Simulated assay, not measured.
Amino acid sequence: MSAVPRKILCLPGYLQSGKIFAEKSSGLRKPLTKKLNLDLDYISPPVVLNDKSELPFSLGTDEEADAKWKSIVESECNRCWWKHTEPFGYEGFDESLKYLVNYIKENGPYQGILGFSQGAAMAAALNNVIEDVLPGHPSFELAIFISGFVFTTPVNENDDKYDLFEIQDVDVYRQKVKVVEGFEKYFDASKAAGHIVNIYGTGDATVPSVRSRHLSTIYDSNRLSVLEHDGGHYVPSKKHFVNPIIEIIKDVLDTKSNL
């Protein structure tokens, strides 16, 4: 490993701040920093949700919702990379991309990127176009996606997207979806040169595993490591699962340093 820490940009999920994501990912963060000497930079999403009515789901009864929303705001987690708008809207995506480009200009370069859930989808999009949106910045050596996904819409307008999420065979899923119009370049991985580590849970009810498995298919299998756990929508922290991730990343970055 290099004596100079490699910098990894870390993107939290929906309704998370950089601080909260750092806490939630401590089981992975600590070995990445202590064992691999990586410099993890956790940042907060720039898009602010001003009212609970902007959420794509209910927080419970009126009283419960008010209390939960107050807690979200007080912890500065009323943030996201884009707002969910139907049927397939991603309001704020362009704003977030510009924010990331400017942030990297001021604080980079970064050798890698890591994202969780909505942050993983954002990380994938940026990973795939980094050299186009930020000329002079090389491709990330490493991209780590946890519960990530591609922006998709059904090929057949009569298909319900939520029904498609129930599909188990990723090849069948691929045939039934397409990238949302206008976002094709962000999920074209032909220019992404680094190694991809794609992590997901088979019990994930928030981002069904078929969506994360579909994300894997856009990358060259020779530059892809897939790690599947039997849990849900979270960053794995158990040593028996994290240790293989650390070994993969160590091998990837050691190889890069010897080129």
Rank of each mutant, 00 (worst) to 15 (best):
A143T: 10
C77S: 15
H214E: 10
M122S: 06
V197F: 00
E64Q: 15
K176H: 12
S75D: 15
V252M: 03
V155H: 06
S71H: 11
H240P: 02
T202I: 11
I146R: 00
P56Y: 09
E228P: 05
D220W: 02
V170I: 14
T152Y: 14
S96Q: 07
E23T: 14
D66R: 14
D51N: 15
R29N: 10
H84A: 11
I113Q: 02
R211S: 14
S117N: 10
I8T: 01
K191W: 01
I218R: 07
E184R: 02
E181T: 13
I20E: 09
V172W: 05
I43M: 10
G112A: 03
L9F: 00
D220S: 12
V129A: 02
P208Q: 10
S71M: 13
D188T: 01
L59E: 01
S221I: 08
L215P: 02
S53R: 12
N78K: 10
K256E: 14
S225F: 01
Y99S: 08
A67Q: 15
S26T: 12
G136V: 06
I146S: 00
E54W: 05
S2K: 11
T152V: 15
V197T: 03
K250V: 00
K239F: 14
T152C: 12
A22S: 14
K161E: 13
S44K: 09
V179Q: 06
N37P: 11
L28N: 03
P236W: 03
E166L: 14
V73I: 09
R211M: 15
F140T: 00
G231F: 09
L134R: 02
